[in-house]
């Protein structure tokens, strides 16, 4: 038996909004620790991972690990039927269920909606993702700042360079109509309301596709802050963490490399 109840649907709605433009379908892996998924986009440029830890849920029960193959567009359609303050309960049989049940209940518990989502058999490989890699540079910034930088720059062109030196990050773009750049310095005071922190072991300069950096702005409502981790020649890791360590959405983006 798998049963998981979120107090408010907002949490899962936001997480799905952050991943559904990158992944069409994925296995949601349920274990005693929580709900997680990982999937690459079709061109294998971006890997998206998501975890909702068991502590994110008001009720969480997973007797046996199970994998629910879900079409992201379909689950999003069903969750549109939940008001943001409605609770969401997901129920599935852990013995080869062919559908998962979604129950939405309003705050006064006098309106209860039931939906069944058909599950799919999805053949997906689990990839080994190195944890806590020794990154050359890590920058943390308010997620609203992230949205502004990459929505602005990706309008100019799709080749965005991130260069991080001591205490400064430079984001630049080259496009058909021209180019642009933006420098962001580490904020001086720890009391600053919207701090930018930059930790550099070695300066790093890498180029990435702007289309993806802009797509990741869909995760901004998840988290007040975002962390970008860079190592020359390796994928860029971007993390949006849910409050209270309830989980995260992480993206790994392949760099553009010199020919």
């Amino acid at each position: 038996m798998f049963e998981a109840k979120l107090t408010e649907s907002t949490t899962i709605k936001r997480v799905l909004d952050a991943i559904k433009d990158l992944i069409q379908q994925a296995n949601f892996d349920c274990s005693a620790d929580g709900l997680s998924l990982q999937a690459m986009d079709t061109p294998h440029v971006c890997l998206t991972t998501m975890t909702l830890r068991s502590q994110a849920f008001e009720v969480y029960r997973c007797d046996r690990p199970l994998s629910m193959g879900i079409n992201l567009s379909s689950i999003s359609k069903i969750l549109k039927c939940a008001a943001s303050k409605d609770s969401v309960k997901i129920v599935a049989d852990d013995e080869g269920a062919d559908c998962a049940e979604f129950i939405f209940e309003n705050e006064s518990a006098d309106r209860i909606a039931h939906f069944e989502l058909k599950l799919m058999d999805i053949d997906s490989e689990h990839l080994s993702i190195p944890e806590d890699s020794d990154y050359q540079a890590i920058i943390s910034m308010p997620s609203a700042e992230y949205r502004r930088i990459f929505s602005d720059l990706s309008i100019i062109g799709d080749t965005i360079t991130i260069e991080i030196n001591k205490n400064t990050a430079c984001f630049s773009v080259e496009g058909d109509i021209g180019n642009g750049s933006l420098n962001l310095a580490q904020t001086d005071s720890a009391d600053e309301k919207n701090p930018v922190t930059i930790n550099v072991k070695e300066p790093v300069k890498m180029t990435f596709p702007g289309k993806y950096l802009n797509t990741f702005t869909k995760a901004v409502p998840i988290s007040e802050f975002v962390t970008l981790c860079l190592t020359d020649g390796n994928p860029l890791a971007i993390e949006f963490s849910l409050p209270d360590e309830a989980g995260f959405v992480r993206y790994f983006l392949a760099p553009k490399i010199d020919q």
Binding site: H44, V45, H126, L127, T207, A254, I257, Q259
Partner: peptide, 14 residues
């Protein structure tokens, strides 16, 4: 401008 790489060389199947 650089060529877009893919992730297949970075993340191996478990």
């Amino acid at each position: 401008m650089g060529k877009q790489s893919t992730l297949t060389s970075f993340f191996r199947p478990l």
